[in-house]
Design a protein around this nucleic acid. Structure first.
Lengths: 353, 353
DNA sequence: GTTTAGCACTCGAAGTGATAGAGTGCTAAT
DNA sequence: ATTAGCACTCTATCACTTCGAGTGCTAAAC
């Protein structure tokens, strides 16, 4: 595993091996390589090159007398410097557009829709993270009485998103009291970003002395939980069953492990969020995040790759959309698909806001 | 396939065959049967009985030299007249209670929670249908302006359920106008069951002449769609991945087919709803619905059984909760599990309302 | 008339070689 | 540096056998 640049021919060979393995799903040998690509050298030479590539850690053998398959490092090199990403054909673009456009008034539905489309198009599992709203600020907040003991907190956020939550309140609170509380809280919190709102902020927003303090406190606490809940991250996964169609997971054991892992969606959500965080630190906001095989720090996804992109609700509010598929995938194709879906989402969001 | 009552010994034999097959997952032969149960006869006699049971359609052979497995009809007989359903043990009850009780303020979350628990306990796919709200009536309806061109319709229904929907409205509508519309609509619709509210009902609810008619109509139309949407049925499925653990679906083909079918949840929803409808016709409201194998009119679920029970939000508002598992399941156990989960749901709903 | 012992028969599951084929690494010649 | 050639390795596959559980049937026993 030396530290050493790949010369041009090695790059060519690695490129060819990845391409062939992706399309055939069979370890590729020196002879097959010669047949399908015209290298101007013999298979023996290729064998030497391949032996070297293996020593360098880019490819590996399933067993002695088989061809080579790319290692994680091989895929990484391929993704980072070998492949070229093309735009989708107009037909492919149209297909995606048509699948998404029929859509609706709410951003959530739009995203779900897009995620489903993405899964159908790629044949893999797709996922979407809800927008990270912590940077968005409150533009409205109303607490409506529903019945004695029950109220609805409605919040409108700067990104045009509406959230609400039913909360329980003391039975004695009257309509008028609640109206007063609601106005005071709204006045105090409007314009504040969600991540700056704390329980203290909420509690100090009402100075009314008519309402018994313990009751008031309880109402404000509930309002606070509603606000915090609006800030929570949600993940949406789609197309898990498609993984069973892939030869990569045709062994029941692998399939079981994979779907088991994916069934704990909160774990995946946490990981995506972490990835996003570290990407933002590096300032690489608007690009893709690609994790291959072992790079994914989730048990059960060692044979998968993970690609996500970022969609934007507004300047400061964004979410992720992406794909989990087998390592052996057409990276450039999938990336352009995600890219186009992301663009379509962004366009539609503009239409909705 | 004669029409004929089973005599006592045949019932005993069928009972034993189902029990053994369910617990061993292997076709059961005459010898094994003798060993495990003390019939006071020889294996040869059993063989004769089994041959007869086969002629009558209760059991079948996977192939010539194998033991017998129950047919759909055999399971049906077992479920209808052979098995006995016991209560869960206190420990099992406790486990379920603990899993559900940590729960929350909203009915939706309660149901989801219970459904997850049901899947974990049975090891099968579980499902829940949202409450059928068409018989519930509106107790409140408010239309809140969010920003020019956008409003939130909030509905409170008799069963204590809150629904809302963001709608687009003409930009020119002012806050005061909207308030007038909202009050008029609310006044007119309060107390009406959802299924009696039509577009006409909504449109005739406002007689204000200040607002230009086309604008008014558009707002009312949007309000109507919001109400109709509240009425929609939703289904929630959980634990699909658990099916891969079952020996019954260890052939990748079957597993693929099953999960593919389940991924179209609206199809399952439609079927459950249909089942519920026909059960209500027969007046058998408060019992279980059990469908076995081919009885399920959904392609891809031929090897499954389908058991659902009914939970109640109020007298006239109910939903379903249940399980989809392999035909080869411990019916009595699963039924008591569903029963207990259902009871727990009902209790918790009382607490919430 | 029902029950039972006995037996020939069937069929899948599991094990065993044997063979073919793809691929490799190495050596020696170009 | 490249290439031809060859010995070697390993898997996949297929035909073949064996084993055992289970059946249906017949004839005897109760």
């Amino acid at each position: 595993m030396e530290v050493m640049q790949l010369d041009d021919r090695k790059k060519q060979v690695l490129h060819a091996i990845v391409d062939d393995y992706v399309s055939t799903n069979e370890p590729v040998g020196s002879k097959a390589l010669i047949e399908r690509h015209d290298f101007r050298v013999s298979s023996a030479t290729l064998r030497n090159e391949m032996a070297e590539l293996e020593r360098m850690g880019y490819i590996e053998k399933p067993h002695t007398s088989a061809g080579r398959i790319p290692s994680d490092r091989g895929y990484r090199e391929y993704v980072d410097s070998l492949m070229t990403v093309d735009e989708l054909t107009p037909e492919e673009q149209l297909e995606i557009k048509q699948n998404i456009d029929e859509s609706v008034d709410e951003v959530t539905d739009l995203i779900k829709n897009a995620t489903q489309t993405l899964s159908r198009q790629t044949g893999f599992v797709s996922l979407a993270m809800s927008p990270r709203l912590r940077k968005s600020f409150l533009t409205q907040l109303k607490i409506l009485m529903i019945e004695p003991g029950k109220a609805l907190v409605v919040m409108v956020l700067s990104a045009g998103v509406v959230k609400d939550k039913v909360v329980r309140i003391p039975n004695f609170i009257t309509d008028e009291q609640m109206f007063k509380i609601s106005s005071a809280v709204e006045k105090h919190l409007t314009g504040k970003p969600l991540d700056e709102i704390t329980l203290v902020t909420v509690e100090t927003s009402v100075t009314d002395t008519e309402i018994p303090n313990p009751l008031l406190k309880q109402v404000l606490y509930e309002a606070y939980t509603a606000i915090k809940q609006a800030d929570e991250l949600n993940i949406y996964l789609d197309g898990e069953h498609r993984m069973l169609e892939l030869p990569d997971f045709s062994s029941l054991g692998r399939a079981r492990e994979l779907l088991g892992t994916l069934s704990d969606s909160s774990m995946v959500a946490g990981y995506v969020n972490e990835m996003q965080g570290s990407a933002e630190e590096k300032g690489a906001e608007d690009t893709y995040m690609i994790r291959i095989g072992q790079e994914i720090a989730i048990e059960g996804l060692e044979d998968c790759s993970f690609i996500t992109a970022t969609y934007n609700l507004s300047d400061s509010v964004s979410g992720n959309i992406g794909v989990i598929g087998p390592k052996r995938m057409e990276y450039s194709k999938v990336i352009s698909q995600i890219d186009f879906v992301k663009k379509t989402i962004n366009e539609n969001i503009k239409r909705l806001t």
